[in-house]
Design a protein around this nucleic acid. Structure first.
Length: 104
DNA sequence: CGAGTGACCGCAA
DNA sequence: ATTGCGGCCACTC
């Protein structure tokens, strides 16, 4: 059991730790923060939280781009493509391969 | 200050 | 196999 502040701090820490050209899922991020079922919290923070963090690297469990991203999924896809992540139909290609791992 | 919302995920029927 | 629902925490109104 961790504190709420710790949860938020871990999310920000982890999202910053994600390497360029990689992506991570809401569930994994929440799980790494200590709450496997708090994926929604990550989404809420992404929307209202610190906008300085690379939220465009966040994708859902299927590897698809988020729906409420500022500007639309096309913008997120563009940002990912700019970092070397290729997408097709708003779905990340080689999702399993570029999926970020906490071991790094 | 109180209540509702939100870019999701996993399990039950 | 598919569909529907509950639940977690932070942020806003």
């Amino acid at each position: 059991m961790i504190t709420q502040s710790e949860f938020r701090s871990k999310i920000e820490y982890l999202i910053t730790r994600v390497s360029v050209g990689k992506v991570i899922t809401y569930g994994d991020l929440a799980a790494l923060a200590g709450h496997p079922y708090a994926a929604r919290v990550v989404g809420g923070m992404a929307h209202y939280g610190n906008s300085d963090l690379p939220w465009h690297r966040l994708v859902n469990r299927f590897g698809g781009l988020a729906s409420g991203f500022p500007g639309g999924r096309e913008v997120q896809a563009q940002l990912l493509a700019h970092e070397g992540v290729t997408c097709t139909n708003y779905i990340v290609d080689n999702f399993d391969a570029i999926r970020w791992s906490p071991i790094q």
